[in-house]
Design a protein around this nucleic acid. Structure first.
Lengths: 257, 257
DNA sequence: CCGCATCCGAATGGATACTG
DNA sequence: CAGTATCCATTCGGATGCGG
């Protein structure tokens, strides 16, 4: 690590851990993978990080060439932190770790927050490009104050904070969304159980659950599918009340504040 | 982390870091990805880890379901630590991080060790399966006491500690091998500069340098290639003296000790 | 020699307060 | 808003001890 001295190993992994292995470091990278952020943005997204530690990490990561400080143009004159190319190259590692950790996510612990940044990276992490083939689709995901949208087109995915301009499906969800993504709940069951509420064609929720998956890619296929396929009338079950397994605690910020 | 308390984030990455983000943890996983190891094996491969920290990490990783203790059969009755399936699933993340870190490896720092385990994972990390297509080849890599061998067949790779039974190419190298793998040195230059010495067909060293690559996959191709292609007589330049950029410091152990 | 457990000084991480 | 300064609780690093 930056501070405690190295591992004494001539090894890529050791070098990586010396650079971004310090506590909080990779979570800062996670947030910055979504876009440049100011000091306070980062602090808000990581409520448990002390400001002095945030300071220290930002300095260390800057010295390591992972992030850079940028002076914001006119209006404010303040600074934002942004990933360098080198920092952006961490995305694969962040995704690999996130994928591994997501399998042990379970239900939210007391006081655990969900942020726009963590959800954005969660979607990028769970994206199964093989399952994504098919027509273009725009999803808007709403979990309390956390609002983001994802566009899948071909095998490409784009996720960004904020509402979609024209969503094909709006998903209102709480943390129970994980169970849908993990395949523990069928899309129909998720809707009927109040875990999610949707605006749009229920079949798009099936698509969502196939494309964003926690754990190994869906099994053989055709087994849990049969009894589900179409929930009921395809039309609108719109604007359902907030799901029973509603948002636990969320900390969000729309893209500009 | 196990000890310091969680990050307070409902996020796969945070969960992963809470599990294997503690200092030394992922290096233990790295070594165990090569195979089961005893306490002392691990301690030897990580000379800078205090024994109490090693103890603690092993217990934490066991509680987290990443590793398990196994009682060794007859002869010794001692214990080995081995990855569980869950632990083995960390390989992707270890490789992603290792790949990122390898690009910043530079030359070995004072006192940095190279072990059979780190080199084994380094080869798995840098393996470029696209470049691997071609005839089967067995490489034996020797860096001081660190001896391992790699077999590439089709797009598959197997790396294991110890000498090969029938190597197509034996490579004697020091840490300068990194420069070859990073493309900073052509195979011919590496041989002529004494960075590596080989036993076998020099063209196999070119193959090696194409298949095990640090950094982005080789550029367009055809540029640095031309002036190199065949070193000279294909036959034997065998048993060259230890390379000038010889092993700095190595700690190894043959597979059984 | 293996497999840790214990002890201790030093360095970080964490919480809070405070300033340009 | 954007950090810096302080002070305390933990953990780490290193050395040593010790039963098997």
């Amino acid at each position: 690590m930056a501070a405690r001295g190295g591992y004494g190993q001539y090894c890529g992994l050791a070098r990586a851990l010396e650079t971004i292995g310090e506590r909080w470091a990779l979570l800062l990278v996670r947030d910055l993978l979504v876009g440049p952020r100011r000091f306070t943005d980062l602090a808000r997204g990581l409520p448990r990080i002390p400001s002095n530690v945030l300071s220290t990490r930002l300095r260390e990561l800057e010295e390591a060439g992972v992030i850079e400080r940028r002076l914001l143009p006119r209006p404010t004159g303040s600074v934002v932190y942004a990933l360098t190319d080198r920092g952006r190259a961490l995305e694969d590692a962040v995704i690999a770790l996130g994928r591994w950790g997501a399998e042990a996510l379970g239900d939210p612990g007391e006081g655990e927050v969900i942020t726009v940044e963590s959800m954005t990276m969660a979607l990028r992490t769970t994206f199964d490009r093989a399952a994504a083939r098919g027509p273009r689709a725009v999803f808007e995901l709403r979990m309390g104050e956390v609002i983001l949208h994802a566009t899948i087109a071909g095998a490409r995915l784009e996720v960004a904070p904020g509402p979609a301009e024209a969503a094909d499906l709006v998903i209102h969800a709480g943390p129970g969304l994980r169970r849908l993504m993990a395949g523990e709940l069928t899309p129909a069951a998720a809707i009927e159980g109040g875990v999610v509420a949707i605006e749009g064609d229920p079949r798009l929720l099936e698509r969502f659950a196939e494309v964003f998956r926690i754990g190994p890619p869906r099994a053989p296929r055709g087994q849990p599918k049969a009894e589900v396929t179409r929930g009921r009338s395809a039309a609108a079950r719109a604007t359902a009340s907030t799901p029973g397994d509603g948002p636990r605690r969320t900390r969000g910020r729309s893209s500009r504040g």
